[in-house]
């Protein structure tokens, strides 16, 4: 009966794929930070799975580890925090993500916000000194995002190759730009539609980086200015958002045009928040704000477009009559 398969709901492979992708980042993180990163990752993943199990028991839902959402929350939380952070920080962050963002809304596809972004944002508010303090022999503990936001001359001391391979201070799994670009390629191959979100987000960030550099630098085409543009694109959570957040299946719109607008909106919010906020990187806040305002923005933008299209289709018939 081949017809039966037509009606079978296709299982999403997004979260399992992303969990496998995280293993690459974990390997890089362990290579750069040592076994501390592995320990943080393990604690975070175990606590996320345990909390998700408890959450499912509370709301009387069937606990499914196969959808990999709990693993995704735990793993990504650990990779977004510094390797040296105390072990209780990812645990609290995962508890917040699951008990206050995921569980109250029912299940995976019903939460209106990114659980990981909410957990990291909460910890950024509660313990900014722990979340944004990095230890590295390379540039004395200040991340590129921090030095870019404060305009300190450390940027000129950062070697571009080190920035690409991740040997710079930053979140434990997010510093290696080469690995992140590799993951973008995985997104392109495995989830080509989600890649539209990433591409529109990255292009928006690139335009933002060019504009910000043009404001501060005398000559936009000087080697230093180009270097700063590169560092802006590789630093902080820019690539992390492009790979993990803007593509998140449960929150992303389904139509291609909507996806482009979604990516652009997240990029614009991210650039503005990074300039305005007191945190060195406001990526998690930008994701939450976009999640909050996207439904209204989508309704406004596409309703107006639809109305215009309706008017355009009505006009010729009127002229004919």
């Amino acid at each position: 009966m081949p017809g039966l398969h037509k009606h079978r709901k296709k299982k999403s492979t997004y979260y399992p794929d992303m969990c496998f992708a995280m293993l690459v980042l974990l390997t890089v993180s362990v290579a750069l930070n040592g076994t501390v990163a592995l320990m943080n990752f393990a604690v975070s993943v175990i606590s996320a799975v345990a909390f998700d199990y408890i959450g499912c028991k509370i709301i009387k839902h069937k606990f499914k580890i196969k959808n990999c959402h709990a693993l995704f929350i735990g793993g990504l939380t650990a990779l977004m925090l510094p390797a040296t952070v105390p072990l209780w920080v990812p645990v609290v962050s995962c508890a917040f993500s699951i008990f206050l963002v995921k569980t109250p809304f029912g299940s995976l596809n019903h939460a209106p916000f990114s659980s990981v972004a909410a957990g990291v944002a909460f910890m950024s508010i509660c313990k900014p000194d722990l979340i944004f303090s990095y230890t590295s022999a390379e540039v004395g503990g200040a991340s590129i995002a921090q030095s870019l936001s404060q305009g300190t001359p450390i940027v000129t001391a950062v070697d571009l190759i080190n920035a690409f391979i991740g040997a710079v201070p930053g979140p434990s799994g997010m510093t290696c730009a080469v690995a992140m670009l590799g993951l973008l390629a995985v997104v392109l191959i495995r989830h080509p539609k989600s890649f539209i979100n990433s591409l529109s987000f990255l292009l928006t960030c690139f335009v933002g980086a060019v504009i910000l550099t043009a404001i501060s630098a005398d000559n936009l085409f000087s080697p230093n200015a180009l270097r700063i543009i590169c560092l802006r694109m590789c630093s902080g959570f820019t690539l992390c958002i492009a790979v993990f957040f803007v593509t998140e299946e449960a929150l992303s719109p389904k139509k291609n045009l909507h996806r482009i607008f979604y990516g652009v909106m997240m990029g614009v919010v991210y650039i503005i928040l990074n300039q305005v906020s007191s945190y060195e990187d406001a990526g998690s806040f930008a994701v939450l704000l976009t999640n909050a305002f996207w439904p209204a923005a989508e309704k406004y933008i596409f309703k107006a477009k639809k109305k215009k299209a309706e008017v355009n289709t009505v006009e010729p018939t009127e002229s004919l009559t």
Binding site: W88, V92, L100, P104, F122, I125, C126, K127
Partner: peptide, 22 residues
């Protein structure tokens, strides 16, 4: 117990009220 200063902000209060309400 290391305090989570986010809970002292108004949004933290709303979270606590929400949990108690549930």
């Amino acid at each position: 117990i290391d305090g989570l200063s986010g809970l002292l902000m108004p949004f933290g209060g709303l979270f606590v009220i929400g949990i108690l309400s549930a």
